[in-house]
């Protein structure tokens, strides 16, 4: 039972990061129908920038994080303008391949500037583990869970009350209607990419604190797909719920099944879930069902 709770808590913490990154993914899909296969690389770039600011320029963690977020937002804007805008309304495969090309390009840049060795994130959170009932948890996990929950709350409020948030929801709902109401769809797309890059960077910094920083962090970009699909590709609450479910499933499967199946179950479980969802409920838990009219 203790092991179960332990795995559950770790799953929750990792799942919260998945939820955050999936949020960025879903935002882009919802507003511009674009699928971002480069989400993992956005995360990677953000993490490395933050790391460099802290270690090479000796900036304290919080200001460094703020600078990173600023940088990520700019990166998102530039990428949207340079790469994605020509593909609005193009076939799905062009969009998929363009973001795959983008991810390859960004991964190459990261290798070029930062090499491939694993780097350790300087300690931000205290080392001493916390005891909650029978479960012992590293503080990093708790902090990441809290950060993510806070961010998710902020974004919920943002979408509900701010002008930009409402404009984004309107665009996602019906692009033409939004245009005719005087919403600048271009600005909305730009903002979406900026926000998506920001949440990825936060996710990356948290993951970097847990696992150390190397290019394998970008693999999360692929894991986000099952998460987003489980929740429904165009549903923000879905991304959050999906993130937690996948995180917990992954952690439990890793804990209980690894010994029978020879390790690495964690990596494959999200994709088995993905196949099951696609077969049983292709539009996920909360996704909008597409109806094709001839």
């Amino acid at each position: 039972m203790d092991m179960f709770l332990q795995l559950l808590v770790i799953g929750l913490a990792v799942g919260s990061i998945y939820a955050l990154v999936a949020l960025g993914f879903v935002l882009i899909y919802k507003s511009s129908d674009a699928i971002n296969f480069a989400q993992g690389e956005f995360l990677l770039v953000g993490t490395y920038v933050c790391l460099t600011l802290i270690t090479a320029y000796n900036i304290p963690f919080l200001p460094a994080l703020l600078l990173t977020l600023l940088f990520s937002a700019l990166l998102g804007l530039v990428v949207e303008r340079m790469v994605l805008r020509p593909f609005i309304g193009e076939p799905v495969i062009s969009m998929i391949m363009a973001t795959i090309g983008l991810s390859s390009f960004m991964a190459g840049c990261v290798h070029l500037f930062w090499g491939t060795d694993t780097q350790v994130f300087p300690k931000v959170f205290p080392d001493t583990p916390v005891q909650i009932g029978p479960v012992v948890v590293a503080q990093v996990y708790l902090w990441s869970l809290l950060t993510v929950l806070a961010l998710l709350a902020v974004f919920t409020l943002f979408f509900k009350y701010s002008k930009m948030g409402i404009a984004m929801r309107a665009t996602a709902d019906d692009q033409q209607a939004a245009l005719s109401m005087g919403i600048s769809v271009k600005k909305v797309f730009a903002a979406t990419w900026a926000i998506s890059a920001i949440v990825s960077a936060v996710g990356g910094v948290l993951l970097g604190n847990i696992n150390g920083v190397n290019s394998s962090l970008a693999a999360i970009g692929l894991k986000v797909l099952p998460v987003a699909l489980l929740g429904g590709l165009d549903s923000v609450p879905g991304a959050i719920v999906g993130g937690f479910i996948i995180g917990i499933l992954e952690s439990l499967a890793g804990g209980y099944l690894d010994q029978y199946l020879g390790g690495g179950v964690k990596e494959v479980v999200p994709f088995v879930v993905l196949v099951l969802i696609l077969m049983l409920k292709p539009y996920g838990l909360f996704g909008k069902r597409e109806i094709e009219r001839v």
């Binding site: 790469v83 020509p86 193009e90 391949m97 363009a98 090309g101 991810s103 390009f105 190459g108 990261v110």
Partner: peptide
């Protein structure tokens, strides 16, 4: 020593350029 990185970058860039200018 940067061959791997450059290869990835150029591969990505070529894919994007082709998609934009000669789909």
């Amino acid at each position: 020593e940067h061959f791997g990185a450059l290869r990835q970058m150029i591969f990505g860039a070529i894919v994007i350029v082709f998609l934009i200018y000669e789909p």
